[in-house]
Amino acid sequence: MSIEFIQEVLPRLLGGLLLTLQIVPLSLVLGFALAVLVALMRLSPNLLLSGLAYGYVYVFRSTPLLVQIFLIYYGSGQFRSFFQEIGLWPVLREAYWCAIIALTLNTGAYTSEIIRGGIQSVPWGQIEAARACGMSRLLLFRRIIFPVAIRQALPAYGNEMILMVKSSSLASTITIMELLGVTRQIVSETFVVFPTFAMAGAIYLSINFGLTRGVQWLERRLSPDLYRPRETGDAIAH
């Protein structure tokens, strides 16, 4: 692997990285909002709402992401006139938006289960106490349930974010030139296989390493009680 090759190829890879770093946060944010909604539906006493949420989560968790992407990107073409009529075609025609929709729906399903677990882990006594203080349902959710649930769900959500960074590479199968798409393009132009893939792999690894570290930092910040350094503990005990 020569220095010239790296100098020539790295800017292009970083250009692809830029698109990856656009797709991933956008789908994560949209997917998170969807997930909160779905988790609440799933926990609702209304059987229709919880059944709908369960069905959505079940379907998206038991099929491969690639099928979901192809179903939305290629599958929508079968109903082109219908989508044109209701004005959604300009969105579904674009591979970019199809990828965002597929990734959002996919991460929404997985994240809703993580959030549901978090919400269910909130001790019942805290909810009773908040009710006894006269909190409304909205205030109870905002001040008690959500903050506690988020802390509980954070480690699992960190894994989901890493999965999304990796999953976003599937967007390259529907012509999107994100990091892996650019990498493949370079390989097919230059026939330099291993160094090119290794560079892309190193970029993915460093994003995920950074993410892991970021989540660890956030965990410590949000629950300082769980991560008190041992020295301080000893000092208090003495």
Binding site: K166, S169, L180, T183, F194, F197, G201, Y204, L205
Partner: peptide
Amino acid sequence: TTIIRGIPDLLIIYLLFFGGNG
């Protein structure tokens, strides 16, 4: 485990497909 779990599965598949023969 760190490397394989930190890079996309599709990248590993492409690498072995294009680089495996060689």
